[in-house]
Amino acid sequence: MQPTTTAPVIEFRDVSYSVAGTSVLLGLNLQVQSGETLVLLGRSGSGKTTTLKLVNRLLSPTSGEVWVNGAPTADADVIELRRSIGWVIQEVGLFPHFTIERNIALVPKISGWPASRIRARVEELLRMVGLNLDLATRYPHQLSGGQRQRVGVARALAADPEILLMDEPFGALDPLTRDELQREFLSLQKSLHKTVVFVTHDLREALRLGSRIALMEAGRLVTIATPQDFLQSPDPWAAAYVRAFKDGLEKAARNRQRVEVLE
């Protein structure tokens, strides 16, 4: 899909990370190519969020190096680095005391954009993520979960970063809203071609959004494959994950039938 000759945008070189003697991440080697959506899939505690935070140096590796845009992050100006990377987390990350407009304008503002350019950009972004311009002056708590998450995406895109890090951004949403936002993410990504690292524990979301899926388990990268290959992966962990999802659906359906019979 992407030419192997170009340098990866993000690269993990034998990265380990431990906190208070406990290893969270072990010898991770990973490359993220320009324009792809790499999904980090795995259960809670598998190290996916840690991996994400190592990219924008919210965490620093215990050993190994993380490279972003051809330079080790350890050498980068951390503030500059973070401003050049969009960061989307679950809805709680919006500033509750900022209006939607100020939330979205955060990075442009601290980067010193002129006010007129910021205003134009905010409008552009609100439209881009499908939000009504009237919402600009509201506060986060006045919005629905889906709307808040759109604001989160708009905020991350504000300074037009090349890289987007998304940490279970749609995890707290109801299935319908999640479906809608996933669809919009795909169409946005079609026009924006950002380099995205997307964390989720939802296999379906991973299959739908990822150009490649990296499965993590207990701090290790277990397997990495395209969605098609992932479903047929011989790797036992991947197979277990796929089976759990299939079983889950069938079981739910069976239980439902049982309830109906009882009634």
Partner: peptide
Amino acid sequence: AVVEAGRGMG
């Protein structure tokens, strides 16, 4: 989470 979001934004 809000503080971390701020830090992550730069």
